[in-house]
Design a protein around this nucleic acid. Structure first.
Lengths: 145, 145
DNA sequence: CTAAAAGCTCAATATAACTTGAGGTCAACA
DNA sequence: TGTTGACCTCAAGTTATATTGAGCTTTTAG
């Protein structure tokens, strides 16, 4: 059974977090072990999370989609507070980091696409640009067409 | 000492291949073990590669830059012959596969960028689009601004 | 002719990012 | 009350992509 959202609940169990972020409990544990998120313990030694952890995990997921490694995500998350909502400034600092990375990646892929587009099977018709060129390969191709 | 290129050499040693592709010998072995490239053996049981292996490895490297997994690269490479230059058709078939994947990735990242751009710290000002939104998180934020 | 360089095989290790499992606690519901 | 489900810890396993090392053979340069 899926529990209804209890919006006013201020502390979340590991199960709550897992469910709401749509990740396994083991992953929540893992992220915590990696220092990406934090928790405290209740009397029963059960983890309790601030609701702000949900945003952190959302950020992690987005960053991962772009191919950023966890340790880099860790670094970027460092500018966000663990236990309260980030200020506009904090948020913008993070966001700018992502934007730059994204732009970089997009530029990289776009270049590759353009190059591939003008590449005729590495017959080296476009020697300077072909991303698949290889000196030896090109020469060999020219020798025995 | 770096050997001069011997363009007319038709069979390459594992060392030749490694040097010309700028990858370690162990990686050449590894790719072969994975079935991405092929070799035959000479009298001394040493691997010998067709020069066309250089193009295959160039393709592997390009594809990896875009974040494509080796097993998918394996599949795409299947349309290229191991022991001769690909025909224009074969090449184009491959190229089209890459193009599609690239386009997909670029589109994905661009979307993400746009979304991130219009996201104000997930105060959920743009509820429908924010890639960082999370129902519980948003509601909580609204409750305690 | 000999010693270094390059090859070979096979097994182990490495890193990232998780997942699974064993064995045990604790609280709520029928 | 007892059993189910959510937690806990800690260790081991998994997949992808290689890299490293040990022990042995072949080639090549001086």
């Amino acid at each position: 059974m899926v529990k209804p959202l209890a919006a006013s609940k201020s502390a979340l169990s590991v199960g709550d977090v897992a469910q709401r972020c749509d990740i396994p409990v083991s992953t929540v544990h893992f992220y915590e072990a990696q220092g990406l998120i934090k928790s405290w313990r209740n009397n029963a030694n059960h983890r309790r999370y601030s609701r702000h952890v949900l945003r952190r995990i959302a950020v992690i997921k987005v960053a991962q989609r772009t191919g950023i490694a966890l340790k880099d995500i860790h670094q970027a998350l460092a500018v966000l507070p663990q236990d309260k909502a980030p200020s506009a400034e904090q948020w913008q600092a993070m966001s700018r980091q992502w934007q730059q990375l994204l732009q970089q990646k997009i530029a990289d892929l776009t270049l590759l696409q353009t190059q591939l587009d003008s590449c005729i099977g590495c017959g080296c018709l476009s020697l300077a640009d072909c991303p698949l060129r290889n000196p030896e390969d090109c020469r060999a191709v020219q020798e025995s067409p």
